[in-house]
């Protein structure tokens, strides 16, 4: 995973509320067994017509937005299915951060495991960004937990552990192995409800 420190980019705006993971990556692309190569399936039904030709009006097909790495969306982004493929598709397409007023929680968790930073900011700022999405440039500094645009510098919340996971690109499983004594102790002593154990 690429460690995340800071990024600067203009925005890719998608002005729709409650975007579910079925839209981010439709089910027909969940049959692969690998973890990369999902960029071409991102927002497939919104991006391509039934013959597979790009729909011109959709923002991801606009060449002047192609090098942008920050997605701007509305509330409850990533609702529905738990498919991590949704984050893989965004990551493979080049998205490094997503700015929204709120996220669905499984999607939010999945982001951190894949080097994508989900940022929650309030509705007024979201509204401002949508109104200036074509031109406004965003600087995100993860160390300082700040997002800067025009003359605004806004602080955003992120848990210490998620921040560390992004900044250091750590192997979470390897880290959990350091708690082996706690896990085996639990298995020996506290298995009242661990019914496979009793």
């Amino acid at each position: 995973m690429t460690p995340f420190k800071s990024i600067s980019s203009k925005l890719i705006p998608i002005d729709v509320i409650n975007i579910d993971t079925d839209q981010i990556i439709p089910k027909q692309f969940l049959k692969l067994v690998q973890k990369t190569g999902y960029d071409k399936f991102l927002f497939y039904d919104w991006r391509f017509d039934k013959d597979g030709n790009p729909k011109r009006e959709f923002v991801l097909n606009n060449p002047s937005y192609r090098d942008r790495t920050i997605l701007l969306v509305r509330e409850n982004f990533g609702s529905g299915s738990s498919r991590e493929h949704a984050v893989w598709a965004l990551r493979d397409f080049g998205i490094r951060a997503i700015v929204a007023p709120s996220f669905a929680d499984i999607f939010y968790n999945n982001c951190f495991k894949n080097g994508v930073l989900p940022i929650i900011i309030n509705h007024d700022h979201i509204e401002y960004l949508f109104n200036h999405a074509e031109t406004v440039k965003i600087n995100i500094d993860l160390t300082a937990q700040s997002i800067e645009f025009d003359s605004n510098i806004i602080h955003f919340e992120i848990s210490e552990s998620n921040k560390k996971m992004l900044m250091e690109g750590i192997d979470e499983i390897g880290m959990t192995f350091n708690f082996e004594s706690y896990i085996s102790d639990y298995e020996k002593t506290k298995s009242t409800y661990s019914l496979g154990v009793v």
Binding site: K35, E84, N109, N110, K113, I173, T176
Partner: peptide, 14 residues
């Protein structure tokens, strides 16, 4: 849970 967490539970049961 997502697939990364599936892997985590497989490896650690936690």
């Amino acid at each position: 849970i997502g697939t990364s967490e599936v892997e985590h539970v497989l490896a650690t049961q936690c």
